[in-house]
Amino acid sequence: MESPRDILKRHGLRPKHSWGQNFLGDADALQSIADALELRAGEPVVELGPGLGHLTRFLAATGAQVTAVERDRDMVAVLEKEAIPGVRVVSGNAATVDFAQVAGVPEIALVGNLPYHLTSSILFQVLAQRAHISRAVFTLQKEVVVRLAAEPGNRDYGLLTVLLGLHFDVEEVLTLEAWRFHPPPKVDSAVVRLTRLASPRAPLVDEARFTRLVKAGFAQRRKTLINSLKSDKGLAKPDVLLAALQTAGVDPGRRAETLSPAEFAAIERALGPVTAMAPPPPDAPEPDSDPDADDAS
């Protein structure tokens, strides 16, 4: 298999650091990623950020129908020139694209080596579009995968852990050391598999309110749950929040990182019917990565 360095040289290109381009050309790792997706012949799969097409070739070798979504025009040109059999190349932004629509089918499998700086945006898109995604396999910064797969009570447990955990089984598949990429990033990566559940782990009254509740819970991690929730003054009045915690059987003195997705869902249900809520406070999103770390793509 031709290395990323050689393909770039053949096309007169260099990795774009500002785009988070770190290309994976390790055949064993690429095969493991393709295997983790468990594709069937003829099954539609959307690859986000295919880059030079290394993983794309392994996906196509399964007989799946591959739609490769790439926003870098140089990479689109490379993929079109490489003309990998069974692959359709689409120019688009992975953070905004409608995954199933771009493939022209109602449900897809999803895979990609995601730029670190777009990780949260894409994962929130996965949540929003989950009805059309049977499963997803992503290469992410190692510490992000650890966070997504964390259990309640772990310091790595956070907002996306809960939101994804309500709707998906989340599993770390393997670690990818930095040296496997060209150019190597400053941190290791890992592969995570998300498998959509047949139904959420717990019912909700309103998905948007659940998301807002969890965001409020983690907005001030060092505070008790009741004090964190009260920081979003538009969520509910303090006495209503306290009553909801009591109804859900959740100690208001606990911290958000100790609650399971089902416990957060119980609090959301206990808030009762949805009424008009004031706009939420500005987001303070969890960091995807060390600000000094290189991006990968």
Rank of each mutant, 00 (worst) to 15 (best):
L118T: 12
V126N: 10
A100P: 02
Y116M: 03
T96D: 14
A83K: 09
L118P: 04
A100S: 11
A77I: 00
N113V: 09
D74S: 10
A136V: 00
T96C: 06
A95M: 12
A109N: 05
V97M: 09
D98C: 06
T139P: 07
I133V: 15
L114N: 02
E80S: 06
Q125K: 15
N93P: 05
L110W: 05
L114I: 13
F99Q: 07
E80Y: 08
G112C: 02
A94G: 13
F124R: 14
V105T: 14
V105C: 13
L123D: 11
A128D: 13
A100D: 04
Y116H: 13
V89D: 07
I84N: 11
R88C: 11
R71T: 06
P115S: 10
M75G: 02
V89I: 15
V102T: 15
F124G: 08
V76S: 00
R73E: 13
V97Y: 11
F124K: 08
P106M: 02
V126L: 09
E82I: 11
A77K: 13
S121D: 15
T96Y: 03
V69N: 12
F124E: 14
E70N: 11
A109I: 03
R130G: 05
L118D: 12
F124Y: 09
S134C: 02
H132P: 00
D98K: 13
S91D: 06
L114D: 01
G104W: 00
Q129A: 00
R135T: 00
A83D: 15
P85E: 09
M75Q: 01
A95R: 09
R71S: 13
N113F: 06
S121L: 14
F138W: 04
A100C: 06
F124A: 07
G86L: 05
N113K: 01
V126H: 06
S120K: 08
E80N: 15
T96Q: 14
F99I: 08
